[in-house]
Write a protein that binds this DNA or RNA. Structure first.
Lengths: 301, 301
DNA sequence: TCTATACCATATAAAAAAGGTATGTATACG
DNA sequence: CGTATACATACCTTTTTTATATGGTATAGA
């Protein structure tokens, strides 16, 4: 059995007349007769009653006709889906994010991507930095988002955006009133930093930039994620340095303040990582959405 | 696209190696390479990444692989179902019955047929005699059951069984005590007959056989079906003549009595009708079940 | 760095399949 | 009783598919 025979048979079934079906198929009548005969021989089943005015389906023929329509329709869908898959409109994208990355760019990007590519199944995984690298190599994820990423041989690191650091203080804290906030004003202040569960991370980076500024930070608390950290600021446990995207999280009593001459204060990257040898069109499409969205953010600021 | 290409591609996808797949398919490697290339060209889609150790599926290739498996499986099922349909194991059978035929042979036959041919969809239609003929001609039904059928040119009438007539009387009625019941004993008795909604029917037949016996029947009541008729007998409205199969219906106060020398009293056929040109295997299989069951009944009596 | 090996790709000739034309056969219809 | 219509068959041509032989490329090991 082959597609041609099914296609031919469906035409004959619909026309109930071999000659007319042949006309419709743009072939002559004898080859069509032969193809139907071959189909019957191969199945060992009479599909048509030959009458003087044409043919009519036997019960077996009727059954096969419905099956054939089904198969032919499915085949059309199959090619369609294959082409869609090639264009990155169909498939699956596994994205790794880190805890506090739920804020800001990532959720909006993912949302936009899902709208643009509704047939791509997007799966989000929360993963630490080293786990993201491992999962990429194991091909468990296609792309990961993180900060302060070290370069790897087989993995491309692409900086999506650079975020300035801002300070989160309780509204009752003296620094909340002070203008022209400088980085060195943090000396001696009780610092709350996150995340504490991925090393090397923001904390190590914060220590380094404090040292560069000429003082040792007084880290009183390490927490796992931004929400907890800012919550502690709200409760008056101390102050915190956070990337600007965290300001999307507004808690009562918490005030975010820019540093004076922010350009001089070191900022923080948000990067994504993916296997350099991953030429998936889906990944490519997703990266385009990310880049476009990041460029928009850049323009606004 | 054709089945061969899908079959070949599925093998390549599973082996991840064209040479090995060719071995499995019992063809040499170059034609397989070419078939895959043609498939790719036709779809305009790269299905495989060629590597040094073999091939691996692209996202499009993976998509097509799953579709291909689906189509191939469906095709196998299609041939299976077509053969089953030819053997009368798959399809639909529309049966027409008349009101009181719910008793006796028909339900048991249908049940047995459904057990033997579970993939045949049996649909029962309640229909009067002329409607059955019409529905047969319109191919709305495949077979009808009825009594006292006139012959038709295009329709085969097959007597399934011949039922003797018995009398249904109330236990308090004088005839209930009388032995050696003769047909002429019915003269003057109030008769309840059915069905009243299909002419010519049993009623006309009853009038005729009474006339033949030398008296005019005293028909006091015509009702639509056996259940109502026998219920009236139970209530003492009169007596009734019924085919023996009706005795399956036992109501309090109703006694069924045979006629003496029953052979002489005319009986009643139960026949089935079907289009003479209907060579459906399903119908054939159903008729076999009916005949076997009728033969069993015959043997018992 | 060279060679052996294991792949996939290409070229060509033979075999198989599909298509076309002409003709045959059966049935309905005027 | 001939004509028209529809499917079947015979025979030849064209296209498609396969196998064999050969070439090219990347990897592994000496």
């Amino acid at each position: 059995m082959n597609f041609r025979q099914l296609r031919y048979f469906a035409a004959v079934a619909e026309e109930e007349n071999i000659g007319r079906a042949a006309l419709r198929l743009h072939i002559s009548q004898p080859p069509l007769t032969r193809q139907i005969q071959q189909l019957e021989d191969e199945l060992g089943v009479k599909l048509l009653h030959r009458t003087s005015k044409g043919v009519e389906l036997t019960q077996a023929g009727d059954t096969l006709y419905h099956e054939a329509r089904n198969i032919l329709a499915l085949t059309a869908v199959a090619t369609e889906r294959t082409v869609k898959a090639e264009q990155g409109h169909l498939g699956r994208l596994d994205i790794a994010i880190f805890g506090s990355a739920i804020l800001g760019l990532i959720p909006k990007t993912v949302l936009e991507f899902r709208n643009a590519y509704p047939d791509v199944n997007v799966v989000l995984h929360t993963m630490s930095k080293p786990d993201q690298i491992k999962a990429l190599r194991r091909r468990q994820i296609d792309i990961g988002f993180n900060r302060l990423l070290a370069p790897h041989e087989d993995i491309t690191t692409e900086v999506i955006l650079y975020e300035e650091l801002v300070i989160a203080v309780n509204e009752n804290h003296p620094l909340a009133k002070k203008k022209d906030l400088k980085f060195t004003d943090l000396a001696g202040e009780p610092l709350i930093l996150f995340p504490s569960n991925a090393r090397p991370g923001f904390i190590d980076y914060a220590i380094r930039i404090c040292n560069d500024a000429g003082f040792s930070p007084n880290i009183t608390q390490e927490v796992g994620d931004a929400v907890t950290g800012v919550a502690l600021v709200a409760s008056g446990f101390g102050i915190s340095i956070v990337p600007r995207s965290t300001t999307a999280l507004s808690l009562p009593g918490v005030i975010y303040r820019d540093f004076e001459q922010n350009k001089d204060v070191a900022g923080l990257d948000l990067s994504c990582i993916y296997r350099t040898d991953n030429h998936s069109q889906i990944l490519h499409n997703f990266l385009q959405v990310v880049r476009r969205y990041a460029a928009e953010l850049e323009k606004k600021s």
